[in-house]
Simulated assay, not measured.
Amino acid sequence: MRVDWMKKSVGLVLLSIVLLAGCNVFEGEQTLDQIDAPPEDAKVTDDIENVGETDEAGEDLDESEGAEEGTEEETDAEADDETEGEEASGTLSHVLYLIDQNGLVVPQEMELPAPASKEVAKQVLQYLVQDGPVTAMLPSGFQAVLPAGTEIIDLNLEEDGTMVVNVSEEFANYQAEDEDKIIESMTHTLTEFKNVDRVKLWINGEEQQTMPVNGTPLTQGYSRDEGINVHQATGIDLMESEAATLYFPMQGDEMVYFVPVTQHIEMDQDQTEQSIVQALMEGPAFDLPLENYINHGSELTAAPTLDDGTLSLTFNENILSNSEKGVIADEVLQSIVLTLTEQEGVQAVQVSVEDHQEVINEEGQPYTEPVTREMVTPAKSI
């Protein structure tokens, strides 16, 4: 499942234009002059928090009180001109999917300057461009992923959760072996936003059915379901297994961060979560310097239970880094929570240990409540 790490960081924006004579008023990051009009029943907006939601009277929020009437001729540049001279203040926290020193796509939470134009999603993509504004902010060993010179022309968020990304032709200046990294980075970065489910690519206003270099299919768009850092483990029968994304710690130059790896695992259909936990405890299935902080001999002592979005897991005391005090290593809990909240219906994880009344973190604070994904965000750059 996808849980929003950045819900608190996204600003609400209303930029209004008239799509066609007689059509309703919609908000968007661009105008019809820049991208062909969507279907008549689609809404285009950069209000990525509220698209598709309705008020108590059942009226679309996009057309509710406060929406201003615009014109077809209004462009992003004109909208930006309206804010010219207004200084953006403060920063916003965003999760960017960057490339680490091992060539893996990994999430990093970074503080970006609040955009004066309020085009938040567009700004986030601009910070994925090599030699772009993110360069001075990159942690040691990390790099941006989109080809240098790529211009993010405009974005359309459709009502079904599809984000249409229109980029310049420089986007196609990459090596074939980097194609998966590029589309995974774009997709996972944009789907951090609450109402974005998949990404479609346009280049200079033309829809792309495939990625431009190696031909990755894009007809239905690209979503998190396609995986990230996909690895096919040897000895696994693909017909008898399912893909799952597991999070493993990695020791970087400046921090410990978490690497999502999609791999096929042998899955018990009646105990999906237990199969995933078992795969996580066994560690990464390929040869990279990923860490496995879970102690040897750790195992579940009861079948996991899912109740109202909370997954309860009970381990033996080998899961603890200090069994006398009941301490579980922060990296262990983070791996567990990040991995299990990828599953449909799992919003939080409650970890308990056999024969221990409570489990505490490395700072001595007890885990009295279920742990959500927002509570174990990716490592911040320092």
Rank of each mutant, 00 (worst) to 15 (best):
371 V>H: 06
346 V>N: 04
344 E>Q: 15
88 A>N: 10
265 I>H: 06
220 Q>Y: 12
26 F>R: 11
18 V>Y: 00
11 G>F: 12
43 K>W: 14
375 M>E: 13
76 D>K: 15
272 T>V: 14
38 P>Q: 08
18 V>M: 07
246 L>Q: 10
35 I>A: 05
135 T>P: 10
332 V>D: 00
298 S>P: 11
33 D>H: 12
249 P>G: 03
313 L>A: 04
127 Y>P: 09
292 N>R: 12
202 W>P: 00
145 V>H: 05
37 A>Y: 04
185 S>K: 04
19 L>I: 08
220 Q>D: 15
50 N>T: 05
182 I>S: 07
162 T>S: 14
218 L>E: 00
123 Q>V: 09
258 F>P: 08
246 L>D: 03
104 L>E: 07
90 G>A: 10
324 E>A: 01
214 N>S: 15
57 A>V: 03
185 S>C: 09
198 R>H: 02
208 Q>G: 06
221 G>Y: 12
5 W>I: 02
175 Q>Y: 05
152 I>C: 04
157 L>Y: 04
74 E>T: 13
70 G>I: 01
332 V>R: 08
263 Q>S: 15
254 E>V: 11
100 D>A: 10
116 A>T: 12
358 E>A: 15
372 T>S: 09
90 G>N: 09
331 E>V: 10
111 E>G: 07
125 L>V: 11
280 L>I: 00
246 L>A: 05
15 L>D: 09
339 T>S: 08
304 P>K: 07
366 P>K: 08
38 P>N: 03
124 V>H: 02
213 V>H: 07
174 Y>S: 02
275 S>F: 02
44 V>Q: 02
323 S>D: 13
80 D>A: 15
6 M>R: 08
49 E>Y: 14
289 P>A: 13
209 Q>P: 00
33 D>E: 12
230 V>G: 03
307 D>F: 10
119 E>V: 02
119 E>N: 15
47 D>H: 06
